[in-house]
Amino acid sequence: MPVIDTQATGINIKNMIKARGFKIADVQRRCGFNTPQAIFKWMRGDAVPTIDNMVIIAEMFGVTIDEIIVVKMI
């Protein structure tokens, strides 16, 4: 059964932020968060972005949602 690999997805998000020259604050502002805590949770793999936020960061990074999410089989 396919499931989202939250750890690998978080690493992917972290690498995309860095590779594209964004700061955590840039993602925070674009997603409308008051604090960066949710983004840190994504990067640690403790949580994944909601669909709405996934659409926002995919557009921000110039990728598709499929390029952000890492799926594993269990």
Score class of each variant (00 low, 15 high):
F22E: 00
Q37F: 06
M60V: 08
V48N: 04
M73G: 09
E67Q: 15
T64K: 14
G21S: 06
I11K: 15
T64G: 14
P2K: 15
Q28M: 11
D66E: 11
R30D: 00
T50D: 04
D46Q: 10
I74C: 04
E67H: 14
I13G: 04
E67D: 14
A47M: 10
N12Y: 01
G10R: 01
I65F: 03
M1I: 12
M1T: 14
I4W: 11
V55R: 15
F22P: 00
V55W: 03
V3A: 11
T35Q: 13
D66I: 03
G10K: 02
C31V: 10
R29Y: 06
P36D: 05
T9E: 00
K14W: 04
M43D: 01
E59I: 05
G10D: 02
A38L: 09
D66S: 12
D26Y: 12
Q28Y: 08
I24D: 04
G21I: 06
W42E: 06
V27K: 04
R30T: 11
F40Q: 13
F33A: 02
N34W: 01
K18F: 00
V55T: 09
T9M: 00
A47T: 14
K72T: 12
I51W: 00
M73W: 13
V3F: 08
M43Y: 03
V63S: 03
M54Y: 05
I56Q: 02
I4K: 08
I51M: 12
M73A: 09
I51C: 08
D5H: 09
I13C: 06
N34K: 13
V55F: 03
M60W: 01
D66Y: 06
K72W: 06
D46G: 14
V3S: 08
M60F: 12
M60T: 08
K14F: 03
Q37A: 09
N34P: 11
I69D: 05
G10H: 02
T9P: 15
A38M: 13
M73D: 11
A8S: 14
I17A: 00
F40S: 12
K18H: 05
I4D: 01
M1D: 08
K14G: 00
V55P: 00
K14T: 01
I51N: 08
V3H: 14
G10P: 04
K41D: 03
I56S: 01
K14V: 01
T50K: 14
I65Y: 08
K41P: 02
I39D: 06
M1N: 10
R20Y: 05
K14D: 00
I17L: 05
I74L: 09
T35A: 08
M16S: 12
E59M: 06
A8H: 06
A25S: 15
V27T: 05
G32R: 10
E59S: 11
A8V: 10
V55Q: 10
Q28K: 15
K41M: 04
V55Y: 05
Q37N: 13
